[in-house]
Amino acid sequence: MKQETMKQIRVGLLALIFPVMLTGFLFWPLLSLGLQSLLPEQGGSISLSLYKEVLMSKHYLSSFWNTFLLSLLSTLIALLICIPAGIYIEGDEGKDRKLLAVALTIPLSLPGIVIGFFVIITFGLTGVVPKLFEIFTGTRHLAFAYTFYGMLLGYVYFQIPRVVLTIRGAVSNISQDVLDSARTLGASTMQSYWHVILPTLKPSIISAASLSMATGFGAFGTAATLSRGYRVVPLEIATAFTENFQPKLAGAMSIILVLITTLMLFGVNKLADLDKKTRGEGSQ
């Protein structure tokens, strides 16, 4: 009996290490950031005036819209490319699959700023593509690194490994027999995709999408290197804190951002779980 209690205490202590660290380094800081953002910069009583300021300002609202648009489009493009690629890599034929798997994982360990620099040397003013264009046609075109499209390209770049790895984990669920049956019943490639592959991959598509949406919302490095006027929320936070000396406004925006990304990651997955349960297919 005594030994059992000792064991319980030991397990309890081990289980507490991580929550204690998390409270000290994340929950408490976020809470105090949230509390401070309720006090206006000039002093005064507790109010939501900073949040009102952010959500009523045309400037900040457009930054939120830009962030949303970049995250959404980069997620969709990444899904479009990575679902077929993931299926091929996890398949049973092809000698190039190992190489492709490595190539598509490399971006995972690259910081956002390096990815931004990649876009600059490819599509910047002295980038390779505009240069080649000039050699062949005489005029310099496609130098879009510092525009919306350059940022979109950078965002797609860092989404690729996240989506590929999530999709690859689920490809083995696609039943070869069902695919074969679909084929003998005369299904085209598109029909196989639509009726067999996508429904099977749905849970992992949802988690890949929510992960990459959340990553897109929080991306700072790529935007910091590439943005020349196209503002996203993480940039606004950095500017408010370092250039405009408005730490509390930066705090309010950070809290909104954290709420959005947390909702994306945990909320979407909870919804997916609920969906699974109500339709009775949850057995994994």
Partner: peptide
């Protein structure tokens, strides 16, 4: 679930919260 929480928090917000608190 807690072990996954830091993934959901954007780095810039994490940094700001830490610098303002400590």
């Amino acid at each position: 679930s807690l072990t996954n929480v830091p993934i959901a928090v954007p780095g810039i917000a994490m940094g700001l919260a830490l610098i303002i608190t400590y």
